[in-house]
Simulated assay, not measured.
Amino acid sequence: MACRVVVVDDSGFFRRRIAEILNADVGIEVVGTAANGQEAIKLAKELKPDVITMDIEMPVMDGITAVRHIMADTPCPILMFSTLTTDGAQATLDALDAGAMDFLPKRFNEMAGDEESAKAMLRRRVRTLARSRVRASTPGTTARPAPGGTPARPSGPSATPPPASGARPAEQVSKASDINPGKLKSARAVLIGTSTGGPVALQEVLKHLPKTFPLPIVLIQHMPASFTPAFAERLNKLCQIEVREAANGDMLKPGLALLAPGGMQMLLEGGSATRIKITDSEPGTIYKPSVDISFQSAVAALRGQVLAVVLTGMGADGREGARALKGLGAKIWAQDAASCVVYGMPAAVAEAGLADDILTLTEVGPALVKGFC
């Protein structure tokens, strides 16, 4: 059965363009279009689509308001189209808070290196969202399946060796009360990697941490360069710990969370103190920033003395970095399927037998407090 999509945009040209691109995939069918948020709410109730693509700035009712209404009344995965500007970043973060699951740039030339790649990316994201689980309207609540959907799996092949020593079976979920602080005592830093659904997930996790949290935190979120400063600022306002976008030469400090800049790679370098190194990506690198690259840099810098946490996201970024860290004795946590927006990255870690604990999103923050405070 084809994925049923509603396209929402105040530009008739853009509606036709998106519909044409999506309908070129035999697995996708555009079943309706709307010119504003009010029409989108009506179509969401009438058509019950598998995915909605949503513009932000529209007359009559903007996209953010429409997302809130749809997620409260007839929840389904929503993909926002945003401009890659400071204002666009703020609006997109608001839309994600309201319940949208993912976002893409409004202009196709900002999606990928060429138009065909951009079209393929749009179709891929829509298909993945159609298979994913939908968050309830209140962030942090247990997800429920999209109509006819199942949790999204990693996009590439997933190695499934026997579970590593001490690893938890993928179906067994821990609680914060299960965490043994003694098993985390060697950790010198907490590394958290995430992608789709990550902005809301990181807010949920970090809000639990006290100002006196004793370890530094490194955050790797797949996000464009123009978005990460606004996202770091938002997290800093919501959390007791200090959160800021990482800069070259920053030192890791207790109670400080450093967010990888979008479009770049963030490495950890050892020595008398662990510092951040910001570099350009090598040609062909898919994720900028990449969870794998940051995790793997911690192998040399911290000798595996870390807790690595992999949260909601598409694909398998973080699995190989977690594998390298695990080989040196690092502890690995993964978010469970039910609370993920997209169960891809955590699934890759869990199914590879690398996760010491699998936790629901609302348990990750309390588990960090239990483990280190």
Rank of each mutant, 00 (worst) to 15 (best):
G329A: 10
G315P: 06
K277R: 15
A260I: 01
A350I: 10
A330Q: 09
E242D: 03
G353T: 02
A300M: 07
K288Q: 14
L235M: 13
P283R: 13
M314C: 06
V243E: 00
G271S: 09
L258T: 00
A301L: 07
A308S: 14
A230W: 01
G249W: 12
Q296N: 13
L307C: 14
D357C: 07
R303S: 14
E269L: 05
L235W: 03
W333N: 07
L328N: 12
L259D: 02
K326R: 13
I286L: 15
L252M: 04
L268G: 10
E351Q: 15
S297M: 13
I293H: 11
V299T: 14
L311M: 15
A324N: 08
E320K: 12
A260E: 04
E269C: 06
S290F: 09
P283C: 13
R323F: 03
D356K: 04
P229C: 09
G270P: 11
R319E: 12
K326P: 00
G321A: 08
K326Q: 07
D317C: 10
Q335M: 06
G249V: 05
A273R: 13
Q305Y: 04
A316K: 13
Y343D: 11
Y343F: 15
K237C: 05
V299L: 08
A230G: 04
D357E: 14
L235I: 02
L235G: 05
S339T: 15
D336C: 12
T279W: 11
A230F: 01
P289N: 09
I286W: 00
A300F: 02
L311V: 03
R303V: 00
S290H: 07
K331S: 10
S272P: 07
T274P: 07
I278K: 14
A324D: 13
E351R: 07
V349Q: 00
Q240R: 11
V349A: 06
A257Q: 02
G321C: 01
V299G: 09
P229D: 08
A308W: 01
A230Q: 11
L259C: 00
L302V: 04
L328Y: 09
V341I: 13
P289T: 11
A273E: 15
A247Q: 15
I241G: 01
K237A: 15
R244K: 14
